[in-house]
């Protein structure tokens, strides 16, 4: 509650929070099927209608309602983004803590593997994994999750290393606290703030990567809707039916803006050094 109030007291946090909130609502409605029309029903007679009262964002080449597909697409994209970021957060936190806590060779080996993963551009690595594993919603989740794991590993390892050298960890060792107790209570608990910020920002990247994969036909498979897939379908009709491209494009853009604004705000709010406002 306190954090929500802080977000809404923060300039860009308010905007970001509202955007993300609206998207979450749309995503839930889209996933529950509470859309104006059925997103995959093809209204053959109403093909390529411009936006009007019945079809708020027009219809596509097959006569499907763009607004409904957009809502379902947002639901789909958010699902992939949330699960992949959850995957990356979990894997990255475990690996980062392991590298920092075990140190020495473990640290060296784990971080070099992460360096190798980071050397690939995100979309290329995701493409590689999806091509090997075959396209689909869950393979995209895993692929995007793996792509963002190294970032979380690094975000966790750095502060964990410095926390490990703090005196309260030394103190814990003098009373013989177990490693698991120290790692969870003394390290992880102090990492909640940087992780929260990273999760918000990673959600934006994951959305973009998912859209990219779907655009290339390797993510969500037709006839299911996704923002990237809708953009991909609109390519050849850019001049005859620009609404096919404008709405999903705007949806991606605004969602990423929202997550970034929210992430920036959280960084300011959770970072104690930023807490003091300049006089």
């Amino acid at each position: 509650m306190r954090i929500l109030r802080a977000i809404f007291g923060h300039g860009s946090g308010r905007i970001g929070g509202i955007i993300v909130g609206v998207y979450l609502l749309v995503a839930i409605l889209g996933m529950l099927g509470l859309t104006p029309h059925n997103p995959i029903t093809q209204y053959r007679v109403d093909r390529l209608h411009a936006p009007n009262g019945a079809y708020w964002m027009g219809t596509d080449l097959f006569g499907r309602d763009v607004a409904s597909r957009l809502m379902a697409g947002v639901g789909q994209s958010f699902t992939v983004a949330f699960f992949s970021v959850a995957f990356a957060t979990l894997a990255g936190t475990v690996l980062g803590l392991a590298a920092a806590w075990l140190g020495r060779r473990w640290d060296g080996v784990l971080m070099r593997i992460m360096d190798v993963l980071l050397a690939f551009p995100a979309i290329l690595l995701a493409l590689l994994i999806v091509t090997v594993a075959g396209p689909g919603t869950w393979t995209s989740v895993v692929a995007i999750g793996i792509v963002y794991t190294p970032i979380f590993t690094r975000v966790v390892r750095g502060p964990a290393l410095s926390l490990k050298a703090r005196e309260f960890v030394d103190a814990a060792r003098t009373f013989g606290s177990s490693s698991s107790y120290i790692v969870t209570r003394h390290l992880l608990l102090n990492l909640v703030a940087p992780l929260t910020v990273q999760v918000t920002l990673a959600l934006a990247w994951a959305l973009l990567t998912e859209a990219g994969l779907s655009f290339l036909g390797l993510g969500t498979q037709p006839p299911a809707a996704s923002l990237g897939l809708m953009l991909s379908d609109s390519r050849n009709l850019m001049e005859t039916a620009p609404w096919l491209m404008i709405f999903p494009g705007l949806a991606i853009m605004i969602s990423i803006l929202g997550f970034n604004l929210l992430g920036d705000a959280l960084r300011d709010i959770l970072d104690p050094r930023m807490r003091r406002a300049p006089a």
């Binding site: 703090r166 005196e167 103190a171 606290s177 209570r185 102090n190």
Partner: peptide
């Protein structure tokens, strides 16, 4: 320890801090 600001975990309540040696 020397530094009273670094030797207590800022995210734990005093009760948890005092309980730690017992749990450990």
């Amino acid at each position: 320890f020397q530094n009273p600001y670094a030797s207590l975990n800022p995210r734990l309540s005093i009760e948890s801090i005092l309980a730690e040696p017992v749990i450990a």
